[in-house]
Each structure stands twice: as structure tokens, then as C-alpha cells.
Design a protein around this nucleic acid. Structure first.
Lengths: 143, 143
DNA sequence: GATGCTATTGCGAATGAGTTGCATCTGTCA
DNA sequence: TGACAGATGCAACTCATTCGCAATAGCATC
């Protein structure tokens, strides 16, 4: 898929433009993130990155994740397992359905829900900056 | 408010009925939980409980919270600050709007959203066991 | 290409929420 | 009242994440 190269380039340009050094380690991490289609946690990303370049340390993975999150390039999710999982933000916003038995994560999006959320917040006098909708479910037995 | 005494009694009866010992420490923690109108974390509950009875330890607070959560008497929330916050489950289900500037938590409920969630899960072949909807927002400037 | 400044790195130690092992204590039921 | 399994406090541990620091390496300049 070509979207991944573009995504990587966007990450890289963004750092460069902001005068942040594009180090070897960061490049590797950016590439790994750009290629991720799942919701990896920091350790998983560390494994993928250090498989490419053994000089990447876990600290740097954490530091880079924080950096990218602050710059809005990736998004942090805190599902119920205690650690943070990450995802690219350039894909369209969506919510998550988590399989309670397997931990598998599905993505979905509902315009109606988005609209209702905005209405509710407005009633309370708020503007929504971001939101999190997670459904925890079990596979429906087919009969 | 009388609901708090009832709630405490319900907690207590539930443990007793399940053959779980109703110890002095548990009573104190149950009472503190029954009286909580906010979304306290374990440490806050520990402070409140040990103010009543200094013999309550943090471990016991954690153990009791886990116990009550497993029994469905309280609910655990993981907002974005890393620690778990707790809430009684006998109040009607609701979702949360968190003020990004003050950390203040508002509760709301939308039948429509509940229904849409169930529909979406069904389409994916899932039954929702529970869900979490958190809106993070900022007070809308009135003009 | 070499130089210099300073951001960035790896390492290991520290943090902070939550858990656990264990000796002691205490509800509960006979 | 006694016995005993379950519950407690304490301290030590886990696990994700952060931080201090000395060494390293981008990158702008020559």
C-alpha cells in the first residue's frame, strides 16, 4: 500500500518543519507506525522497531510516541488492559468495538452518534474536543 | 439523603448473602463508597476510609474495590489520567463528559445513542456487554 | 568534509498505580 | 467459647512509563 509511504513522509516532514531532529531511531519508529494497521502498544512498537534497527531503545519509543501524540500525528487509546495503544490519526475518525474474549479491536463510525454527542455537549454548554466511544462485547452466538 | 443508607445496606447484604465476611474494614469502605457522589480513585477512597477508621489499609481498599467490581456493585472507569475511578452501579447507567480544563465530570444519558450502539454491535455480530462513552470538552464561550 | 552546539540517545534508576506473599488477626458458625 | 478459613497490614513486588545523566549524533555553518 502506498498510503504508508506518504504517511511516513508526512510524519518526517512535520518533524523537519518544526525543527525537530529526524534521527535514525525516529525514522525507524515513524516507519513502523506508518505501517501499523493494528493498535500496537509501546512494547509491540519497540519490538517491531528494534527488529529493523537494534539501536532503538524502549525509552526512545516512549519519547517518540509522546512527541507524535503531542503533535497530533498519532492518537493514544487507553483500553481496559492498562497500557496505551497507538494509532495513526490521518485515518478518518472512528470508534472501537473490543472483543472481550480475544481482545480483537474493530473500528466503526456512526454519523448519527457523532451528531448526538455534539448536541449533548452543547446542551451542557461544552464544545467537544475529542471523545472516546468503546463498546466491549462478545461474539453473538449464531443460531 | 436516605439512598445512601439503603445503598450501604445493599452492599452489605450482598456480601453476607454470598458468604463473604463483612469485616470492620469492609463496612467502612462500603459506607464511604455508598456516600460518594463523585468519581473517587482508590487513594481518595483510602483517605476517606482511614479518616473514619485508621486501621483500613490501602491494600484492603484495593482488594475491596476489586471484590465489589467483580460482584457488579461498583463500576471502574479509566479516564485519561491513568488511575481508576469508581462509581456505584445502582444509579442508572450514564456516560461522562469530562471538562478538559478542570477535570470536572458531568453525567448524561442518551437513549438514542444507547440504541445506535446496540445496532452497530449487532451489525458486527456482537452483543454489547458494556460500553464507555467519554466526551472530553471545553466550556463553550458564551457570547 | 570538518567543527561546534545542543537535541537526542541508551542505560539504569525512579515513579506510581496496583498486586501479592506471608505471618497475624478476626468473622462466623458450631 | 473455640476452631479455622478467610481477611488484614505490611513490605516487597510487578508492570507501564518517565527521568537523570553522560555519551552520541543531527544539522547548520564554515
Amino acid at each position: 500500500m502506498s498510503g504508508e509511504i506518504e504517511r511516513y513522509e508526512r510524519f518526517r516532514q512535520d518533524l523537519k518543519a518544526a525543527g525537530i531532529r529526524v534521527t535514525e531511531q525516529r525514522k525507524v519508529i515513524l516507519r513502523v507506525l506508518a505501517e501499523a494497521h493494528d493498535h500496537p502498544d509501546a512494547h509491540a512498537l519497540f519490538l517491531r522497531a528494534s527488529a529493523v534497527d537494534a539501536s532503538v531503545s524502549l525509552s526512545t519509543v516512549y519519547r517518540t510516541l509522546k512527541l507524535l501524540e503531542e503533535r497530533g500525528a498519532i492518537q493514544r487509546h487507553a483500553f481496559e488492559d492498562g497500557r496505551s495503544r497507538f494509532e495513526n490519526t490521518d485515518v478518518e475518525h472512528h470508534d472501537h468495538l473490543i472483543d472481550l474474549d480475544t481482545g480483537q479491536v474493530f473500528e466503526f463510525r456512526s454519523e448519527k452518534i457523532e451528531r448526538l454527542q455534539a448536541e449533548i455537549a452543547a446542551e451542557l454548554g461544552y464544545d467537544i474536543i475529542r471523545h472516546k466511544l468503546e463498546l466491549y462485547g462478545r461474539r453473538r452466538p449464531k443460531r
